[in-house]
Simulated assay, not measured.
Amino acid sequence: MAGREELSRSFGAVADVYESGRPGYPSEAVAWMLAPVRAEGRVLRVADGGAGTGKLTRAAVEFGAQVVAVDPDAAMLAQLRERVHGVPTFVGSAERMPLPAASLDALLYGQAWHWVDPTAAAPEAARVLRAGGVLGLIWNIRDEREPWVRRLTAIMKGSHAEEMLAAGDPPVGRPFGDLERARWRWSQPMTRDALFAMARSRSHVITASAQERARIEDGLELLCDEIGAVGDDTVELPYVTNAFRALRP
């Protein structure tokens, strides 16, 4: 079984699949994370930490922010540069950000904080944020109130993020105080190919044995047939977006 470090660094091998299979973020959720630092006529300085292929980067750019993207995987950043032009990219980690002190109004993490060491990442976030700056954490989680979505998770297996959020708020720690939390429910139309791409972009699947991957693919084939995800026909995949924010003292 792959260890946590191997899982967290596995996505670059399938960066194009990650880009096609993973959802973006609701604009309302990104606006909520940035709300404490937005001011009329002021351009926000924002970093997308664990930026991956730039799903959250794009959302921050749409708000008119001056954005930089940081990720430990150069292959993921290469995908980001193909799709988001004009955003500087840096190889780095949450525990060691390649950014100057007090240089940011907001530091955002999309589908990423569950991979970090919060005891090191929280002080580093505080270092790069200005006083009053916001640390924003966000995850898209499939809504398992829908029976077929529960079956999908059983086929693919649950993720570290899902397990962490099921247990409560994400750990952050000093110098940040209590987290504020907000939630949005929405859905995304998915074709059969998109559902397979989403599954193939997950760390457990990327690092699985050939036998385990075959089991997952067979299960997905059967599920897609049953729910009508055939050819170009789509099904609505429901999501719950969980967003958190905390201010730097």
Rank of each mutant, 00 (worst) to 15 (best):
102 A>L: 08
104 L>K: 11
90 F>I: 06
136 G>L: 00
114 H>W: 05
102 A>C: 08
145 R>N: 10
106 A>I: 02
103 S>Q: 12
122 A>R: 12
103 S>G: 13
113 W>F: 13
110 G>M: 07
132 G>A: 02
89 T>E: 05
108 L>M: 12
100 P>H: 10
94 A>Y: 15
135 L>S: 05
129 L>W: 02
118 P>R: 04
102 A>G: 12
130 R>E: 15
101 A>R: 11
108 L>I: 05
124 E>Y: 00
125 A>E: 00
95 E>G: 07
93 S>G: 08
109 Y>P: 08
95 E>K: 01
135 L>Y: 06
143 D>W: 10
92 G>V: 10
133 G>E: 02
145 R>S: 15
136 G>K: 00
95 E>S: 04
109 Y>F: 15
106 A>D: 03
105 D>N: 10
92 G>E: 07
110 G>P: 06
93 S>P: 07
91 V>P: 11
105 D>W: 09
122 A>F: 09
107 L>I: 09
134 V>Q: 02
140 N>I: 12
130 R>L: 00
102 A>D: 14
127 R>M: 00
143 D>K: 05
110 G>V: 02
140 N>Q: 12
112 A>M: 08
113 W>C: 07
137 L>C: 04
101 A>T: 15
121 A>V: 01
118 P>E: 14
103 S>L: 11
138 I>E: 07
144 E>T: 14
125 A>W: 06
121 A>N: 00
115 W>L: 01
142 R>A: 14
112 A>S: 15
97 M>W: 15
129 L>A: 09
103 S>H: 11
129 L>E: 02
119 T>M: 13
103 S>I: 08
123 P>L: 02
114 H>T: 03
91 V>Y: 05
108 L>Q: 01
135 L>W: 02
145 R>H: 12
125 A>F: 01
96 R>A: 15
143 D>L: 08
118 P>N: 11
115 W>P: 01
137 L>W: 01
118 P>A: 08
115 W>F: 06
115 W>C: 01
133 G>S: 04
144 E>F: 07
90 F>V: 05
142 R>Y: 03
126 A>P: 06
144 E>H: 10
117 D>C: 03
140 N>C: 08
120 A>K: 15
105 D>M: 15
99 L>S: 11
118 P>L: 13
89 T>R: 11
142 R>I: 11
119 T>N: 06
117 D>Y: 05
117 D>Q: 13
105 D>E: 12
92 G>M: 13
110 G>E: 06
127 R>I: 00
133 G>T: 03
137 L>A: 03
134 V>K: 00
116 V>E: 00
106 A>M: 10
103 S>K: 13
132 G>I: 00
121 A>T: 02
137 L>N: 08
121 A>I: 04
102 A>R: 14
116 V>R: 00
114 H>V: 01
130 R>T: 15
141 I>W: 03
138 I>F: 09
142 R>G: 13
96 R>H: 13
133 G>R: 01
97 M>I: 11
115 W>R: 02
107 L>Y: 04
98 P>E: 11
120 A>I: 09
138 I>G: 07
94 A>I: 05
93 S>M: 10
118 P>D: 14
106 A>H: 09
98 P>C: 09
129 L>F: 10
103 S>N: 09
125 A>M: 06
136 G>D: 03
138 I>P: 07
117 D>A: 13
128 V>G: 13
138 I>Y: 05
139 W>D: 00
106 A>V: 03
132 G>M: 01
93 S>C: 09
123 P>R: 09
